[in-house]
Design a protein around this nucleic acid. Structure first.
Lengths: 205, 205
DNA sequence: TAAAGGATTGAACTCCGATTCATTACTTTA
DNA sequence: TAAAGTAATGAATCGGAGTTCAATCCTTTA
């Protein structure tokens, strides 16, 4: 034999892979899927188009991984925000606030991942993404019900509804008017969500 | 001269136009946008592909008209449901129930029009469609606030949120599991919406 | 019935962007 | 340094779906 992958090569390949993922994420955050075409991703990552295919079999797979890694990060953040002291209401409130503040930090990216129209295959990945959020919310709602803080309700439906609220009220306006909105409406949305779950303790932190 | 459009010709052309719109709507209701390709619309309408272009300049225009006519019908139905006696809460309840029951009557179509991913141009039309619903809901929320039945809140945000709830909780599951759901979850969703607007009078009709 | 003016047809064209692959350029080991 | 094994390249290919248009068919009027 005359060649075998060495640690150096391995390392460089790993970094190329990461560069591709970062380029895709960057472009998604700038111009959505329209901007995240394979050519553009390659150019941004500083490689040739064909090279992407040595790392990801299809565009769908590439985006799937972007969805996955983002979802993981976001869900983690929400869970962390919800952990700690306080009743179910204030924990749910913290989780929602975390979601919102992170989404607003890169609104275009949040919109691309949660709501922007895409082709059917990528849509399947998006569903998983939304379900991940819904799952976290469902847990919090179930806890609230068990603890008697929230009204009795079908937690899975409520969770889906909350994802809908976040998507539409927070990110939907992205394209509508509302350029100034943002942090200001965050409290409105959070309060609405708390009412929706029938949180008995109202207002304050 | 030797030719001028006669009423008969006019009538036939009108009927062709309608056939095209109905074919598009039918296909959307069966298989969504994927199934509503220009070839398929033409075949379903019983005409040649090219003929569609004598009636609609582009696919986008054709779909726009489908959106418009549907939106008009639906908004009308919601307004009618909301009219009549009763407090804001029960009127909002009736409007939501109307939306839901109509959406469930042809769930695939409702999903296609409200949530299915599409290309950017058609998406613009969808926005208008969603706004039409939001506008109706906003009015009802404002009335409720004015009458002291609903908590004080930013009605436009609430309206967007309610559209989000309907889209995600009702239609989202279309692709997820929930094949059996439907009418059963309708009440859950309606109750959630009523809580979300902070309706003071709870439960019953 | 013939000539004129439209309407219809559907195969061919176009555009767009993902994917391929023959060629070239590296890396490693003997 | 040569040979072997990989990786990278990017122009060309491919596929899908909307759109076009020359040829054909209908309607109407004189």
């Amino acid at each position: 034999m005359a060649y075998r992958e060495t640690p150096q090569v391995r390392a460089r390949k790993d970094s190329v892979r990461i560069a591709i993922l970062e380029a895709a994420r960057l472009l998604l955050g700038q111009g959505g899927f329209r901007a995240a075409q394979m050519n553009a991703v390659a150019a941004t990552a500083g490689i040739a188009t064909g090279t992407i295919y040595r790392y990801f079999p299809t565009q769908t797979e590439l985006f799937a991984e972007v969805f996955r890694s983002n979802s993981q990060r976001e869900v983690e953040a929400m869970l962390q925000a919800a952990a700690g002291l306080g009743g179910s209401a204030s924990r749910l409130r913290r989780a929602l606030r975390m979601f919102i503040s992170r989404a607003l930090r890169n609104r275009r990216l949040a919109y691309a991942l949660i709501a922007e129209p895409v082709d059917a295959q990528i849509e399947a990945e998006r569903l998983r993404y939304r379900r991940a959020y819904a799952k976290v919310l469902e847990l919090l709602v179930l806890e609230g019900i068990a603890g008697g803080e929230f009204v009795s309700q079908e937690a899975d439906i409520t969770a889906a509804a909350l994802v809908g609220v976040l998507g539409e009220a927070l990110l939907g306006p992205l394209l509508h008017a509302a350029p100034a909105s943002g942090e200001s409406s965050a409290d409105s949305i959070i309060n609405l969500c708390l009412r929706a779950v029938g949180a008995k303790e109202r207002s304050h932190e």
